[in-house]
Design a protein around this nucleic acid. Structure first.
Length: 574
RNA sequence: GGGCGCGUAGCUCAGUUGGUUAGAGCAGAACGCUCAUAACGUUUUGGUCGCAGGUUCGAGUCCUGCCGCGCCUACCA
């Protein structure tokens, strides 16, 4: 048994997440966590909302709510949705937690003491009307290069030229539109990660098993231009973690908070402390997961995220952990994902384009989405959600292959033998050959999951399901029963044991369907990853009582598909 | 501009360190079965592996150049 720490990238607080967000980190992480639990490992699977930053403040303002109230509400909403999608987090925390405040401030202190934080005086736009400093992208004006009227202070979206806010002609606040701006001097903190370039590079070069996507992004940042740049870790906002040196005030930074990207990854650690507290575990339990000098040497740590998150997890966060010199556990494997597209274009939270988690569940049960998303996860490149692909994938794999197999076995059995599973005589030649093939394929599935190869795992699982139909077709119990009741019963017994197998190995992918199968077929709720097939496929013996489940999956009709597509076609939320 | 990735059957993709007749699912065709959600099974039709060179006994796999597509480039998270 190993101790396995799994974190999913933190979903941002500003609204309901779409399917692209879901498949980019939380969902594959859940499948991996569930698999590792079935394997008997001690798993700690964590996630939390990422609550700080300007977009959260603006979203709260738009909703007419206090920021703290807004975040609480959105946290509850995201928590409810992740439960509905059966994301099996051991704890779903908040980056605004007391634990994160303390840890973040402690990290800042340690980094400062190790000469890895620098105080820099900068000139920055201050909006008198909004009574706040404005980040570069919240200043708009005319682009000096192409004349575009609504160029942002960091970059002109029209000609893509990189800009400084002071370059803009006739600058104004993007928040209020006010032109009453002045440039003020203000102090900020920078994380001197440039000093850690060699250390980080060596660490990343040692990770030969990471996906190319992950290491190539990290190396690009390490070697781009003058190399790894220092990074500002403070912002002029009200909502966030106040800049402090541990518990002490930080002179000149009294009204500032840490940059969201500094405190968000620290929440992984804080969430562990929250988890400990919530469960009343012995004080210091969280450290056994995170501190190498307190028992974390044997922990294997996996992170899941979309590609936009990779720089922070490969560079800034490790720089924070290493730089503190406090023997923190570093990540062992980073799984990065590309984007999921919606009908060829981008999912967009701001434009309401695509399908969002709450809307998805209004249409169909979670397993339909889980299955399609996992079997089409954007691993090697961006992948495209289309209603047609979704319809075909769900209908074929879930209804025709898995659902129909369970249906034909249970209904045939019930009609011929009543509500008790008939007994197995002994494994015949055909069954032995099949047991052998299943063992091999199960090993492949297991290896794919060990390697966090999500699509391949789905393909292999589907193949295992298909073996059930192939077996039934060639064994032909409906013919055999005319000569031998016992022999037909034996075929059916074996088929029930195949369903028993599927209810275990499918659980990381489609948990609620598996629970339903366990329930209806009266299988034990004690689920493990199967070992020896010969024994495992004898588990359900003769006389086992069951109930015929209703059809587990309903097909998506063409009419339904068209209705969904029309509903979600526009640039407004459906 | 720079960096990275992709381009394999009509569609979506897999192809370990280069090794014999290039694979899967979907779609198409034929046949079979009738237990089942008109579902299932068997067989089968589709590929000069983006283009052009090169290395090699041998290249989808390595090298060079080109074409096309996508992503990233640090104050959106």
């Amino acid at each position: 048994m190993n101790r396995i720490l799994i974190t999913s990238a933190l979903p941002y607080i500003n609204g309901v997440k779409h399917l692209g967000n879901l498949v980019g980190s939380q969902l594959p992480a859940d499948t991996f966590a569930r698999y590792m639990r079935l394997k008997g490992h001690e798993v700690l699977f964590l996630c939390a909302t990422d609550e700080h930053g300007t977009p959260a403040e603006l979203a709260a303002e738009e909703a007419g709510m206090e920021i703290s109230e807004f975040c609480s509400k959105m946290w509850q909403s995201q928590k409810t949705l992740s439960d509905s999608f059966n994301l099996s987090f051991d704890h779903f925390g908040r980056s605004s937690s007391k634990e994160n405040h303390e840890l973040t401030q402690d990290f800042a202190k340690a980094l400062y003491e190790n000469d890895l934080i620098e105080e820099i005086i900068e000139k920055q736009f201050f909006s008198l009307n909004d009574n706040r400093f404005l980040p570069d992208r919240y200043i708009i004006g005319k682009c000096p290069s192409c004349g575009y009227e609504k160029a942002r202070g960091d970059q002109c979206e029209s000609c893509t030229k990189q800009l400084e806010p002071t370059d803009l002609i006739d600058p104004q606040s993007a928040i209020s539109g006010s032109k009453d701006l002045e440039i003020r001097e203000t102090k900020h903190l920078y994380l001197k990660q440039s000093l850690m370039k060699e250390t980080l590079e060596k660490w990343i070069n040692s990770k030969e098993d990471w996906p190319v996507l992950t290491t190539s992004i990290a190396k690009k940042w390490l070697n781009d231009g003058d190399g790894l740049k220092d990074r500002g870790i403070t912002r002029d906002l009200n909502w966030g973690i106040p800049v402090k040196k541990g518990k002490e005030e930080w002179p000149g930074l009294e009204n500032k908070v840490f940059y969201v990207w500094f405190d968000a990854p620290i929440e992984y650690i804080a969430a562990t402390a929250e988890w400990e507290k919530e469960n009343n575990f012995q004080a210091g339990t969280w450290e056994t997961w995170w501190k190498l000098n307190k028992g974390a040497e044997d922990v294997k740590y996996f992170q899941f995220m979309a590609k936009d998150n990779v720089p922070f997890h490969t560079l800034s966060f490790p720089a924070t952990l290493i730089g503190s010199n406090q023997s923190w556990k570093l990540v062992d494997y980073i799984k990065g994902f590309n984007w999921l597209l919606y009908e060829g274009g981008k999912f967009s939270t701001s434009q309401g384009r695509g399908v969002f988690m709450d809307q998805a569940l209004d249409l169909l049960p979670s397993d339909y989405w889980r299955w399609w998303l996992l079997s089409n996860a954007p691993e090697s490149s961006d992948s495209d959600f289309t209603w047609e692909s979704f319809q075909i994938g769900v209908n074929k794999d879930l209804s025709d292959v898995l659902g129909n197999f369970i249906s034909r076995v249970t209904k045939f059995s019930y009609s011929k033998f009543g509500n008790e599973v008939p007994p197995l005589e002994h494994f015949d030649e055909q069954q032995r050959i099949l047991i052998n093939e299943i063992s091999i394929r199960l090993q492949t599935l297991s290896t794919n999951l060990d390697n966090v190869e999500i699509r391949k795992s789905c393909a292999e699982l589907r193949h295992l399901w298909a073996l059930g139909n192939e077996y039934l077709q060639s064994a032909e119990p409906w013919k055999v029963i005319k000569d031998s009741h016992a022999k037909a019963g034996s075929i059916i017994n074996f088929s029930f044991n195949l369903i028993y197998l599927y209810s275990h190995i499918s659980r990381p992918f489609i948990p609620s369907t598996c629970d339903l199968i366990l329930d209806k077929l009266n299988f034990s709720k004690h689920i493990i990853w199967p070992g020896d097939m010969e024994n495992f496929l004898k588990t359900i013996g003769g006389g086992h009582e069951f109930e015929v489940p209703q059809n587990l999956f309903h097909k998506i009709s063409d009419a339904q598909r068209e209705e969904f597509a029309a509903k979600f076609s526009g640039d407004l939320n459906g």
